[in-house]
Amino acid sequence: MIETLVIFLCCAGMLLFLGGMIGILRLPDAYTRLHMAGMLDTLGLLILLLGLVLYGFLHAPMSLLVQFKILLLWGFVLVTSPTATHAMVDAGVRAGLTPWVQPDAKRRRK
């Protein structure tokens, strides 16, 4: 039963990672690609790590510290990821990179 849950969580996490990666490749500019990158390291990482924590409980119940370390990993990423994303967007805006807009929206503005 718990085995199935572990497999489901890990697969869902990897599906999110796959979707994020495909999104990064398909989107038109740096700003929109960052949105997809943010998807990877919030929910994708959380689900994947939860799967790993459950797996650890199942196969090595005494190694509680390892489980705490895995959860700590998500905490660190939760703090650093928005900072890094904001730094990249800020650098782009300061360097003068114009955000991509829909072509018809651009025509309407002109």
Binding site: G19, R26, M39
Partner: peptide
């Protein structure tokens, strides 16, 4: 975390959408 999860799932569907670049409207 719940809000992030909801937005994530919407973004996941968008990523696999064949008409991705028509549906987004960055601003």
């Amino acid at each position: 975390v719940w809000e992030i999860a909801k937005c994530n799932i919407r973004m996941l569907f968008l990523a696999f959408d064949p008409k991705l670049n028509d549906k987004i409207a960055p601003r």
